[in-house]
Design a binder for these strands. Sequence first.
RNA 1: GCACCCGUAGCUCAAAGGAUAGAGCAUCUGACUUCGGAUCAGAGGGCUGCAGGUUCGAGUCCUGCCGGGUGUACCA
Length: 549
Amino acid sequence: MPTIESIEQIVDFIKAALHAAAGEAAAGMPSAFERPKDTEHGDFASNLALLLAPVLHESPRAIAEGIVGRLRLPPEVVDGVEIAGPGFINVTLSPVVLRRGLMAALSQGEAFGRLSTGRGLRAQVEFVSANPTGPLTIGHGRQAVLGDAIARVLDNAGYQVDREYYFNDAGRQIRMLGESVRAQYLTLLGRPADVPEGGYHGEYVRGIAEAFRADRGDAEGETDVDVFSDFGKNAAFGGIQRTLERLRVRFDSYYSEASLYETGRIADTLRAMREVGVSYVKDGAEWLAGTSLGLDQDWVMVRGTGEPTYRLPDIAYHRHKLERGYDLVVDVFGADHQATYPVVLAAVQALGGDTSRFQVLIHQFVTVKRGGQDVRMSKRSGEFLTLDWLLDEVGVDAVRYFFLLRVRSSHLAFDIDLALRQSEENPVFYVQYAHARTAGILRFAAESGIGGEEPFDPTVLTQREELALIREILQFPVVLRQVTESLEPQKITVCLRTVATAFHQFYQHHRVIGDDRELSWARLGLVRATRLVLARGLSLLGVEAPERM
RNA sequence: GCACCCGUAGCUCAAAGGAUAGAGCAUCUGACUUCGGAUCAGAGGGCUGCAGGUUCGAGUCCUGCCGGGUGUACCA
């Protein structure tokens, strides 16, 4: 019997035994050995016989019988092996293994579920990257929470993680902001001015203008627009950072697009493209020869005016990410960037960059429904719902959990009325309640002198609900491995809900603290392990694990 | 027009190509004299948008439609 530090070792052990019993034909065959959807089918199911059937020209069930007949597994590992359905081999773990897994989890403590896949590696996660022209919207919220959770997951896997926010502080958008602020400022001075075409109309622009007036007085009417731009940018950025702080999102670095010009990286990238021969001049503009790189069209890098498009800095920026030595670079973008990243990656690759280090994650947009109607969000028309407003309404835990509940590829319809009406019944409370309950039980045990940290004999844990809960607890590291590979943190929310459910069921059926001291201690150990998983999982999502509610 | 994403229970969403498609919310019926009822037990609810194809096996892969979203700028 192998030493048990995780359920994964047992799985590998049994899987290898199955392959050995299947003979040479199974060598190197990528069989599945996974948890079946239906718990009646055991802890793990192998499809090996199904895969071998076409190779051996035999019925899958006959092959499965052969495998099971030759299978030699220690009885303390496996409780039962069954052939079911078309030829699945279902394996049920023994309570002995489950209990050992529980003890291992408890002895690992905070390290339970921690991985070593990223040990010694550096990762960067870029997300939000909203230009400082106004408050963050609900849509930005999804990205902020998603990127932050991914960073936490990578950190858990042993990566040294940097969170980066890239922003454009020099382009046309910022100039527009400046002109919009100036127009509002002039209006405040009693010299009504129109916000320019394409400018910003939101209420916040007037707020910035008022702040400007309070700061600089009334004599700035003729001042250059750059002054207004700078002021507006700083004001907007300050607001963004306050919002992010409320959302429990912190960045290690803010990367300015303008700095790419100052450091010469723009010019350098342009020069490199010419050297490699992937750019050409046409109609006074400089183009990236996209079609020669497998893209469906060529793209302008430098306009006829001599001003680069946003794509060139993007390429220079991504080259710099690689130069900074990251082993993994995760870009979290909204669906509106889906056309951009293939161009950036193709160009970086053409310039010799190792693009296999990039992971581009596109998340779909959040649409907002209120009163049964879609609310269109457009920052420039001033028509949007801010993240601050949402945080005011439902609180940070609900916002984070809600956004992490969905896969990123799915459109998220945020029904405001529903969110507000159900704010008390948000799924986050179910999991938080389970955690508070574990804390409550442990508190009670300590207060009533039972203790709770005593060593115990796990063999007294024999009830169905106890073993079911242990099974779910032991899934935690497996789930984290999946999440680290797929970068899909919503799997954590599923895992936590399952653990919480198993715990509530256990609690409903069995008294933790009773006359039987030995049993009480063992069950308290189970409660401790539950609490550990819930707290660790919630912390990976950036959601609070309350002691009381 | 073309490219990418999405259509699954009334609603919001899950399901490495695996077995009878699952959860929550909502609806209905039940359950506490004891550790937290924000809980638990149960019921109803589906031609997985439509039509073909590949496969022992398709919600998942391929093709074509239909519907929604996002791109497709010498705007960012």
